[in-house]
Design a protein around this nucleic acid. Structure first.
Lengths: 334, 334
DNA sequence: ATGAAAGCGCTAACAC
DNA sequence: GTGTTAGCGCTTTCAT
């Protein structure tokens, strides 16, 4: 079942069938009707590989993420896909599993599949690989890596503003002993969050204590063990800011496990605002990173670059905002 | 950059390049070396569309799920992809967003992309669409829909056993007023879980109370509102079994919101055992549905059908098991 | 072991 | 508005 059979049955050329299928060039209503009925009768659908091969456009964007299992990413993927489908594009997802060397496989896959653009939402990025994409003229959009150039855009997330609010919120509740549990040191965005935290503390005249800086892994267990360490200290913090919500969940778990309460004994602030956070016990105060907006901006960047030929990338700014729920409260008077 | 350039540079024919790339037919070590170095020098990588078009095999399996945002699915996707990649295959994911009519789009997409097989893990299934796949000789594997036939396998999840244990567990703690919050009525697997619940109750001589049967939506909010209704009753249940973990999370939220405690006032049992469940407060007692095993079986089914030509599908059995944590406890003596 | 060449199904010039 | 046809990049007989 291919375009030739449809053409034969409709008594037209394959080019005409292609025209009605793609709506590229006007076709007389009469032939159009004939073609459509042939298509229906034969149950014809085009072979996308042949299409891509013939036209050079795959109508597919790639999305490279670290781990589909991290709740942050499915939201992005879903949003991205929805917009893509609305624009007649499709989405190819690839995971790096947080392993830098897998990045190469992912990019290779994108190249082989001839994607029209790729959104890279992981930080396991290699400059050489970017070159590969660039050389092929494939638009790229990064999340948070800062370099904008030919065919490459960037979505800059303003962590500072959200973190600033979080610290202000905590300070207004009387907190001064504020701990921070970072993400994996190798993750630039985690580093950025951490830096923003330190900066914000200083701005407020609070001196950061190195022993209140712990390293997590952006997973629940990392938050748990980091918090467990914190709880062993002689002077435990009265509040902790986690580098993502998963970490915060682990933190809360560890606090509860130690027989303490949130926010009565310790206040906890998360980061990301995954759907779940509002349903935690207590509902999590967190810095929201608007994922739909990220997905939408990422798509726009790619779409613009691959269609309108806007060959110089642009930098998008996305703000973060503090969502106050019930995991934060006034510092307990001693 | 294509196979012809590589061939030219290596001084061989394109056929030979194809042979070394695919390792299909032995090639003299000398030419192989030449070809490989040309490939490296030119940075050549094959165009997968041309490959698919030429060979008829896409080396890609399709996975149709309801919603990538539901934590159940990313686990499946991840597991499936890992195994697929190990076997030199790739994965194409499509969402139905729980809308039956989107199923058609998904299947169409699979057809267009010429997948070598498709795993359908949603229940928005239309017999006609199956025919479409079948007619093209594309292997299918279903989750929980029961029909095994030519080229179509099924993964049967034995919900009964897990639910049976859950009820036994609850009964041993003295519970008799056990409520059930089902999933969407349109979802067969949700229906199956509900039936298993009723059957299990009867086996134990407990008469199911219709007013203890509520309908959720497999999301957190559905669990919340269903539980809220339950809490308005004059005689509230002492335990509730939710049709999935997300529902259970909502249930716990509603219970807490009402100023009651889990498990002191009400015991809660979930279903699925998503990663998060162990970290909830309290950690959730739940019926585990082994997702890795599902992913692995699904892949095996497809791989067998599309490779070894095992053209009759088979039925896989997967057991469920109760994981006892801390959301269940003895019924409070009145 | 290797090469020549015929497809695979479609798109896009180009001609009419 | 429609047909002809030359690719797109690869695989795969069929020869040799």
């Amino acid at each position: 079942m291919n375009i030739r059979e449809v053409a034969k049955r409709a008594g037209v050329s394959t080019a005409t069938v292609s025209r009605v299928v793609n709506g590229t060039v006007p076709v007389s209503t009469h032939t159009e009707r004939r073609v459509r009925s042939a298509i229906k009768a034969l149950g014809y659908y085009p072979n996308s590989h042949a299409r891509t091969l013939g036209s050079g456009k795959s109508h597919m964007y790639g999305l490279i993420i670290s781990d589909i299992t991290n709740p942050f990413f499915p939201d992005i993927a879903k949003g991205f896909e929805r917009i893509a489908v609305e624009h007649g594009q499709e989405l190819l997802i690839a995971n790096t599993d947080y392993q830098p060397q897998r990045m190469q496989v992912c990019v290779r896959r994108m190249l082989e599949r001839k994607v029209d653009g790729v959104a890279i939402m992981t930080s396991e990025m290699d400059q050489q690989l970017i070159q590969l994409l660039n050389k092929r003229g494939i638009p790229i959009v990064f999340l948070d890596t800062g370099k904008v150039g030919r065919m490459t855009s960037n979505i800059f997330i303003d962590y500072d503003i959200g973190i600033e609010h979080a610290i202000a919120h905590l300070a207004s509740l009387g907190h001064e002993r504020i701990a921070f549990i970072s993400g994996p040191p190798t993750l630039p965005s985690a580093q950025t969050r951490k830096d923003a935290f330190l900066r914000s503390l200083k701005n407020r005249g609070i001196k950061p204590r190195p022993d209140y800086m712990k390293t997590g892994n952006h997973h629940i267990d990392g938050g748990q063990s980091a918090m467990a360490q914190l709880l062993k200290m002689s002077t435990i913090p009265t509040a902790v800011l986690a580098s993502n919500d998963l970490t915060a969940i682990g933190v809360i778990g560890a606090i509860h496990a130690a027989g303490l309460r949130v926010p009565d004994d310790i206040s906890v602030v998360g980061f990301d605002d995954i759907e779940l956070s509002q349903y935690l016990q207590p509902p999590l105060t967190t810095v929201r990173v608007p994922r739909m907006e990220i997905a939408s901006r990422a798509f726009t960047a790619l779409y613009a670059a691959s269609h309108k030929g806007a060959d110089h990338g642009i930098e998008y700014q996305i703000a973060t905002e503090l969502v106050i729920r019930q995991s934060t409260g006034p510092v307990r008077s001693v």
